[in-house]
Structures are given as C-alpha cells and as structure tokens.
Computed example of a mutant assay.
Amino acid sequence: MTSQIPSTDVLKSQAKRLRADLASQGKAVSHAATLEMVAHQWGARDWNTLSAQASAPTHGWTPGDRVSGNYLGQPFKGIVKAAKLSGSGMWSLTLRFDTAVDVVTSPHFSNLRRQVTAVVGADGISPRKTSDRKPHLALDPR
C-alpha cells in the first residue's frame, strides 16, 4: 500500500462514522465489527494488525497547553481552552489569548478578540486563508 496509515485516533473516528452510517440504514453493527471493516479497507488482516501499523498519533493539543503564533497576521501568546480531533485529522481549537488581538487592519477602528475558535491541521496551520492568502491561524512549532 502506498498511502501512509493514519493514527489510531483517526482510524477509530472512521469506524465510529461507519457504524453511525450503517445504523442510519437499519444495520446494527458493533464497534468492534466496524474496526475490523476499517482494517480491511486499509488492506490489513484485522484491527490489531492495522493498529500496529498505524502512524504515531498526530501532533495534538490538550486544554491548558501554552501556544503562540499568529492570528489574522497578529502575533499572540495564549492557552488552549478546548481541543477536538476530527476524523479527517483536523483539530478544532479554542484559544484564549493572554492579550487581546486586534483582528481589523483598518486604522479607523479596532475589533479586539480575547478568544477564538479555529480549525488547524496537524501542523498547526489553518486551511482557511485571508484575502492575501495567509492562514487565519498559524501556531508556532513546539
């Protein structure tokens, strides 16, 4: 197989979504059975084989972690208030800034934010971009 196998967290999320989809079609399946189905989709003999081959867990964030970076082009330091990994490997992060960040570039007015929620990849970079093609949120590497 040429694709890199994602982390077990991502694989388990796939199994959870598969189970929900099957249930919506009236097909009750156990979580263990959907783990086996996901393993077969990835070309593995069974779940244990796949989980042993899975990549290391993606870079993760947990509430309380200190972070820094740029939000809408403004540098910040803050804390992770909430973090959730999606099945696609993206993270939804709620950040609380130590000092409010001005999210407006106009010299005529300001809009200060102390807390934001954004989606980032495992690299800490938001896929959403500003009009000048810079990411909304870019976390500094740890």
Rank of each mutant, 00 (worst) to 15 (best):
V38Y: 08
L18Y: 03
V10F: 04
A82K: 15
K84V: 12
V119S: 06
A82W: 05
T130G: 07
I79K: 06
A100I: 05
F76W: 07
V10W: 03
N70V: 10
A52I: 00
S126K: 01
L22M: 14
Q41I: 08
G60S: 13
T117A: 07
S126G: 03
F97C: 06
S51K: 15
P135N: 06
K84E: 15
P135Q: 03
S106R: 06
A39E: 09
S86H: 15
S92W: 13
Q74G: 03
S86T: 15
L137P: 05
L95P: 13
R17F: 09
A54W: 01
T58H: 09
K129W: 06
F76C: 07
S24V: 05
N70F: 14
S7A: 13
F109P: 05
D65E: 00
G64T: 10
V80G: 06
M37S: 09
V104Q: 06
R17P: 01
S110H: 10
S7W: 02
N70E: 13
S86E: 14
L22Y: 07
K16W: 05
D46A: 08
M37D: 02
D132A: 06
R45P: 01
G78A: 13
Q53G: 05
G87S: 14
L95G: 08
T2K: 09
A15Q: 02
G121T: 07
V116K: 00
V80Q: 08
L50V: 13
V104C: 06
T105M: 08
M90V: 03
D98V: 04
Q41C: 08
F109M: 12
H40C: 10
A23Q: 12
V119F: 04
T99Q: 09
G89W: 08
L112S: 05
H59T: 14
A118Y: 02
P57W: 00
K129Q: 15
K84G: 11
W91D: 09
S92L: 11
A15N: 05
A122N: 05
P6I: 12
R114C: 04
S24L: 09
D98M: 02
P63F: 02
S131T: 15
L112C: 00
R66T: 11
S13D: 10
L35C: 12
R142A: 11
S106M: 03
T8R: 15
H59D: 00
D65H: 04
F76L: 09
G69T: 12
H31G: 02
K84R: 14
S24Y: 03
G26H: 02
D21K: 11
K84D: 12
D21I: 09
D9N: 00
F109N: 13
A39P: 14
R17W: 10
F97K: 12
A118Q: 12
G60D: 09
D140V: 07
P135R: 00
A15S: 08
G121A: 06
K84F: 10
V120H: 04
V10N: 02
K77E: 15
K129D: 01
Q14C: 08
S55H: 10
A32M: 12
G89R: 11
Q115G: 02
K134N: 15
P127K: 08
H40L: 15
V29K: 05
K77W: 00
